[in-house]
Design a protein around this nucleic acid. Structure first.
Lengths: 195, 195
DNA sequence: ACCTGAACACCGTTCAAGT
DNA sequence: ACCTGAACACCGTTCAAGT
């Protein structure tokens, strides 16, 4: 047995990542198991531990990819005014969460007791900085700290609407309604913040 | 073996619930297993299935209890003005989430593929209605639907701040900072909403 | 009727053994 | 060096068998 050398380590790593993402997308985070991944790529469980330290490590890399995809989507959101730009960012965030529900939810689901690695924290920062930049343009007069506070408050808020509306905690609220809720939050907050 | 009759079914049910809550509080949701509960209360695994249908059923009842506790806490939040009342509600929500972190997080963590029972949805409604009531007082002129929208938007937002600040996704944001963020969100939103 | 405990079908992770 | 597959220590859930 063994020593097939049909794929490089890098190829296997990619195969694992891809298979894992497919499982999450189709059947949700809870359906993700090493044994299922191994079966899907035609290797045995042991092989997965050649390319990832453990399940938590693999999960973190899936999440990182999702964050990259999300960041890219946000970067493509353009609008005429700064205020419309922030609205467009919020819309894009909601749309992404809705479209890639299982992967997006996974980002905030998994509780790793292990400390979050530095490279992963940067991925999160990457997303937040996009919003912060928009806020610095909204009120050029105020300090960076103020812009940071506003960005944090509003973006956490937008995230909260996505969480509650998409997981059904808001009662029978559909995604069209989530859109309205997000718009309301953004519009009112910006208006109040400027005052 | 068997037929000890040391406790009634109702007593065992309460013992299970209490033991489960203790495990969640001390070691987190992921540490909750039937076997650990059984050991803690001095019964065997089979006994737990006498009083709860399965793990999901038990989890739902733990969550329901937490929601009851949260609702009661929110009902005790009083203030002079309506605006201060909403701020007090937000503060109370954040404080509860912070103080009972593991149990609070559990409410939004668990993904039951099984449909959420009606009695549980009412528990969630119960919390939301408290906030909606405050909003109806804030702007007496507008329709119930408008008040509902505002309450949903702001409260989802407050929830989002709690989620992101308490799980560390906002970088190294402490809970004092979460307080400031919540206050900012509430204040700006109300101001913008009124305008 | 109440409760046990063994059994079943799963997990993640490790590692000696094969090529 | 690469990969296997059996083993280990866990899961949730069921249910025949005992009192």
């Amino acid at each position: 047995m063994a020593r097939r050398s049909e794929h490089t380590q890098e190829q296997i790593r990619e195969m694992v990542l891809h298979a894992a993402e497919t499982i999450v997308i189709e059947d949700g985070f809870h359906a993700l198991t090493v044994r299922k991944i191994a079966m899907d790529i035609g290797y045995t469980v042991g092989s997965i531990y050649m390319v990832f330290a453990n399940m938590d490590d693999l999960i973190m890399h899936i999440k990182a990819r999702t964050l990259d995809e999300l960041a890219e989507r946000l970067l493509h959101a353009k609008a005429d005014s700064v205020e419309q730009h922030i609205q467009a960012l919020a819309d894009a965030y909601l749309a992404f969460a809705h479209q890639h529900f299982n992967r997006w939810r996974m980002i905030f689901d998994a509780q790793h007791d292990a400390p979050v690695p530095e490279w992963y924290q940067q991925k999160i920062q990457q997303v937040f900085l996009i919003v912060e930049a928009a806020f610095r343009k909204l009120c050029p007069g105020q300090s960076d700290e103020q812009a940071r506070l506003a960005a944090t408050a509003l973006w956490s808020g937008v995230h909260g609407v996505c969480v509650l509306s998409l997981n059904g905690s808001l009662g029978r609220v559909g995604s069209e309604n989530a859109q309205v809720t997000v718009n309301t939050l953004v519009k009112s907050f910006i208006q109040g913040w400027r005052a």
